[in-house]
Amino acid sequence: MSLNIYGEILNEHNIRPTHKGNIADATIRLEGKNPTCGDDIYLELKVGEDGTIEDGAFNGSGCAISQASVDIMIDLIIGESKERALELCEKFMKMIRGEASPEDLDELDEAAALKDISHMPARVKCAVLGWHTMEEMLKKTDDL
């Protein structure tokens, strides 16, 4: 296994996350758990009436990979529609399976820093925790 994963982007988002904390006017909250690791993430999103994700934040504890991954994800989806967020989520999962195209990686922007997770099976769960949590949140609120 290589250590490429612990690069500047991941470390920066881990040590100085932009979105760690709470947002006062969140419209959805969900806890994501990874019982084998003890990782625990509380994700909050503020979704506007037109379905745009206006703000997001997370709390909880976990390894650098799970923390940075969720922080990067929130960066990426703020300002996007729910549909676009789910699309990015799908591309992220594709990347984790090692199946993403160069265009997919482009769209994933900083999240592409986690690409090598596809070679670290023990850490896949950490990388996808936040994304899975978001997917579940947005799908649940489909019919709101």
Binding site: M1, L3, I15, C63, A64, I65, R123, C126
Partner: peptide, 14 residues
């Protein structure tokens, strides 16, 4: 301090 044990073990695994 500041490093999750799973990251420690991944780094050592390398």
């Amino acid at each position: 301090d500041g490093v999750h044990p799973h990251d420690i073990s991944s780094i050592l695994d390398s």
